[in-house]
């Protein structure tokens, strides 16, 4: 699943987008890994992440199976607390914490190194700052997978602001049409950037949609920029 590898945007578009995730490898270090995953997220919470998530479960925003129609008047921008996400971990799926500053990420990586869980930890984001932060935290990176961007029938892709939002679900569960609709609703004052980001986030089944970056991108529409 290359769900965090190919996000669309120029380099400056990723200044506030660092996804730190931890996972096991079946048959090698999966025994007893669930408490480590929970500890990873609890440690992350001390460094004020944008959000935390578990793959296939999602993040603090989630769809509901039986909604009360009252919701059209009272929709919250957060459906679950961070603690509820951690409590919900019953399977050893990958978990992630998203940071919007290099400083917070670096401080977190220091603690991750000290904790020595023995599970694989990866950071998806701008490779140069990640390399630098890891070094300062005393970590030598092991491997890198570079995104070479998109090629082929590029004229089938939508416009840049839409792609910047919709590719934050790397599984493509977040439709460009919905991203465009939310950009327009923000431009029209029908939703705040925070509300629109919550709506979009509900479509990311892994919870690695970065609501802070989304709010920033949506705020641009609010100012009459394309």
């Amino acid at each position: 699943m290359t769900n965090t590898l190919h996000r669309y945007g120029p380099p400056e578009s990723f200044r506030d987008d660092f996804i730190v995730f931890i996972r096991n490898s079946k048959g090698r270090n999966d025994v007893g890994s669930i408490p480590k995953l929970k500890e990873f997220l609890r440690t992350a919470l001390r460094h004020r992440p944008v959000t935390i998530s578990q793959y296939r479960f999602g993040s603090t925003v989630r769809p509901a199976e039986h909604l009360n129609p009252r919701i059209h008047w009272t929709r919250p921008v957060q459906d679950l607390t961070a603690e509820q996400i951690i409590e919900a971990i019953t399977k050893d799926h990958t978990v992630a914490a998203i940071f919007d500053t290099q400083e917070a990420m670096e401080a977190f990586l220091r603690e991750v190194k000290a904790a020595d869980w023995g599970l694989s930890v990866n950071v998806a984001g701008l490779t140069a700052p990640v390399h630098a932060c890891a070094k300062r935290a005393g970590i030598v990176r092991h491997s890198v997978e570079y995104s070479l961007g998109f090629q082929g029938a590029l004229d089938r892709l939508p416009e840049r602001p839409v792609l910047e939002l919709s590719t934050m679900c790397g599984h493509s569960m977040l439709s460009p049409n919905l991203a465009r609709k939310m950009l327009e609703w923000v431009r029209e004052g029908r939703r705040t950037p925070e509300q629109a980001a919550a709506t979009l986030g509900r479509f990311c089944s892994c919870g690695i949609f970065n609501p802070a970056r989304a709010v920033r991108l949506l705020e641009a529409a609010q100012g009459g920029n394309r």
Partner: peptide, 26 residues
């Protein structure tokens, strides 16, 4: 490889970094 990619016309800037903290524990 990073430099080689730039030479091939792919000035890469984003990706996934494995920090090398995993090991066999089972």
């Amino acid at each position: 490889v990073e430099k080689a990619l730039a030479g091939e016309g792919y000035p890469v800037f984003r990706g996934k970094t494995n920090l090398g903290l995993g090991r066999l524990t089972n």
